[in-house]
Structure formats: C-alpha cells, structure tokens
C-alpha cells in the first residue's frame, strides 16, 4: 500500500483538555500504519511544544514529551504557524523540538497536499 499524506492539526494548549494527548495517540496509530505524517501546531497549539514544561511537582502527565520522540516513529515533519508563534511572543528556539515555520499561505498549501486532515 502506498503511504498517504495525513496531517494532524493541534489547535489547543496542553493540559487543560485532552485533545493534545489523544491527538498524539492518533499520530502514533498513523505511524504504525506507515503513512506519511505531518503535524501542524497552530493558534494555542504551539504551546504543546514549549520547552521547560515542568510537571515534577504535579500529578499531571507530561505527555508532550512524546512530541520529542516522534522522530523514532518515523515522524519528522513538524510545522508551526509563524503568526501564532509571533502573536504569543514565541520563537522556535523556545520550543523543545525542531520545527519548520509556515505562514498562513504555507498552512493553506500544506493542507492542500494532504489526503486526510485530523483536527485536535
């Protein structure tokens, strides 16, 4: 079977709701079926990748560590929306993984390349 392009959109910040964690479950499921996966972090979703998350004194699980391990699952295409970063005062150096920045037109063209898009 040829690999299909699947895009996973992360639109919310971590911890307040489970969409990031359960979105990652979906990404891992996609990776075991050897599809061609991309992840896009947009709006508050960019906070999923912020470095320095410290859950040592918390019962909350730092599921966002899994974003850093995705390379081991063959998932290498991680994108952030530049305007979402900029309007939150974030730079790519502050993130815990290597990402590519896309402007709004770039986001539209990334979507255009996909076979399926999942929103979290």
């Amino acid at each position: 079977m040829t690999a299909h392009k699947l895009l996973y959109l992360f639109t919310r910040g971590p911890y307040s709701c489970a969409s990031g964690n359960e979105g990652l479950d979906a990404v891992l499921a996609g990776s075991t079926l050897e599809q061609d996966l991309s992840l896009l972090f947009i709006h508050d979703g960019v906070f999923q990748l912020l470095a320095g998350q410290d859950t040592a004194d918390s019962e909350l699980k730092q599921f966002t560590r899994t974003f850093r391990a995705l390379e081991d699952f063959g998932v290498q295409r991680l994108y952030v929306h530049d305007q979402s970063m900029c309007s939150r005062g974030l730079t790519v150096e502050q993130l815990s993984v290597a990402v590519s920045e896309l402007d709004s037109a770039g986001v539209a063209s990334l979507i255009e390349q996909q076979y399926r898009v999942f929103t979290f």
């Binding site: 079977m1 299909h4 699947l6 891992l28 499921a29 075991t32 079926l33 599809q35 076979y115 999942f118």
Partner: peptide, 11 residues
C-alpha cells in the same frame, strides 16, 4: 477498537 481502525478507514 483501536485508533488504527480510524486511520485505516480514513484511507
């Protein structure tokens, strides 16, 4: 069922 079922059916 697992999420693989979703990926599979979506494809």
């Amino acid at each position: 069922a697992g999420l693989g079922t979703l990926t599979d059916a979506s494809i």
